[in-house]
C-alpha cells in the first residue's frame, strides 16, 4: 500500500480538484516525531449548491474534509481573521460526536402534499413518532462541553449575505494562489479537560434533573394528545385501495393491531384442532413414512456435502500429530 503518509515532495498538491478549491491549512504544532513536526490539513471549498436549494444556500460555502475539532467558533474566526473578514452567520456540520439526539419519524407522505391542507399537515409533522422534541426546559442537561467531527466530514458555512460569501470564497482562492499560510485555530476543550468536564457534567444535580423530567413529562402529555388525534385520523381514512389501515390505540376504532393478530392465530389454531388428525387415513401414514424417508435421505446428502466442504477447507481428515 503506497500510503507513506508523509507528504512527499515529489507529488504536487493540486490547487483545485473538480470544482473545489484545495486550501492547505497549517495545524498547530503538537509533540510528534520530526517528520510530522509541521503538517498541513487540506480543506476542499466551493460555493454551496445543493440539489434542493434552501433559502440560505446561495450565501453558503461548502467545505469538505473539516478537521475533527472544527466548531462554529473556530470556523467563524478562520474567515473573520485570516480569510478576508467575512462574517459567518452559522455553520452546519454533517456529523457530531456525540451525535444530536435523533427521534423516530413518520414517513413523509409526498402524495397528498396539497396546498389546501398544507397548514394542518405542518402541525402534524412536528409530531415525532415517539417522545417529544425537547425544548430547553425539558431537555436533559448536556454532558459534553464540545462536539467533535468525524474524520473527513463536511460543513456548510452560512454567511450573513451573498456578498460576504463571494468575498470569502475569493479570499480563499487568493490565499491558495499566493500560498499564504493559513493557521488552524485549535477547537476548545480538547485533551484531558474534555473528559474531566464530561465526567463532571455527567452527574448533574438532582434538582436540575427533577425539573427537567417534570417539564418533559408534561410536554409529553400534551404531545400524546396530538398524536392520538393523528392516529384516530389514520384509523378512519381509507387508503387508495379502499382499505382502512389497522392501527394501534383507541377503543372506538375498528380493531387493535395486536388483537387482530391474536384473533388470526386463534382461528388457525382452531382449524388445525378440528381437522382430521395426521394418522387417520392410511395414505397419511404412508405419506408420513415417505416423508421421513425423504428427510433421512436429504439429511444424508446434506451431511455428505458438509463433510466434502470440510475436507475442501481443512484438507484431509487425519489424526493430528
Amino acid at each position: 500500500m503506497p500510503s507513506s503518509g508523509i507528504p512527499s515532495k515529489a507529488k504536487a498538491i493540486p490547487t483545485a480538484v473538480s470544482d473545489f478549491t484545495v486550501l492547505p491549512i497549517t495545524l498547530p504544532e503538537a509533540k510528534l516525531p520530526a517528520q510530522f513536526a509541521s503538517v498541513q490539513h487540506y480543506l476542499y471549498i466551493k460555493p454551496h449548491e445543493p440539489s434542493n436549494p434552501t433559502p440560505s444556500s446561495d450565501r453558503s460555502l461548502f467545505i469538505s474534509n473539516v478537521p475533527i475539532d472544527a466548531g462554529e467558533s473556530n470556523i467563524r474566526s478562520l474567515f473573520a481573521e485570516q480569510l478576508g473578514g467575512s462574517r459567518v452567520e452559522s455553520v452546519e456540520f454533517d456529523s457530531a460526536i456525540p451525535a444530536e439526539p435523533s427521534h423516530k419519524k413518520f414517513k413523509v407522505d409526498r402524495s397528498d402534499s396539497g396546498d389546501a391542507r398544507g397548514k394542518k399537515r405542518k402541525r402534524d409533522e412536528d409530531i415525532v413518532a415517539e417522545g417529544v422534541v425537547e425544548d430547553e426546559y425539558s431537555a436533559l442537561p448536556k454532558i459534553w462541553t464540545s462536539e467533535l467531527r468525524r474524520s473527513g466530514g463536511c460543513a456548510v458555512v452560512v454567511f450573513v449575505d451573498r456578498a460576504s460569501m463571494k468575498g470569502a470564497f475569493k479570499e480563499v482562492q487568493r490565499a491558495v494562489k499566493t500560498g499564504k499560510e493559513i493557521k488552524w485555530i485549535q477547537g476548545e476543550g480538547l485533551g484531558i479537560e474534555r473528559y474531566k468536564s464530561h465526567h463532571a457534567l455527567r452527574y448533574p444535580s438532582k434538582a436540575v434533573l427533577q425539573a427537567s423530567v417534570n417539564a418533559y413529562l408534561s410536554q409529553f402529555t400534551r404531545t400524546e394528545t396530538a398524536r392520538n388525534r393523528l392516529r384516530a385520523k389514520q384509523r378512519s381514512v381509507p387508503d387508495e385501495d379502499g382499505f382502512i389501515t389497522v392501527t394501534r390505540g383507541g377503543r372506538t376504532g375498528p380493531a387493535r393491531l395486536e388483537q387482530a393478530e391474536a384473533k388470526q392465530k386463534e382461528l388457525e389454531e382452531r382449524k388445525k384442532a378440528n381437522g382430521p388428525k395426521g394418522d387417520f387415513y392410511r395414505f397419511q401414514t404412508r405419506e408420513k413414512r415417505k416423508e421421513a424417508e425423504g428427510e433421512l435421505r436429504r439429511k444424508f446428502e446434506l451431511d455428505k456435502k458438509r463433510v466434502e466442504e470440510m475436507k475442501a477447507r481443512r484438507g484431509k481428515i487425519r489424526p493430528e500429530s
Partner: peptide, 18 residues
Amino acid sequence: DVNKGAIYNEIRRLGGEM
C-alpha cells in the same frame, strides 16, 4: 491518500496531556 500526519496531529491534540 490518507493524511496521516494530520491525523496524528489531531490525535495528539485531542489526547493532550494524556
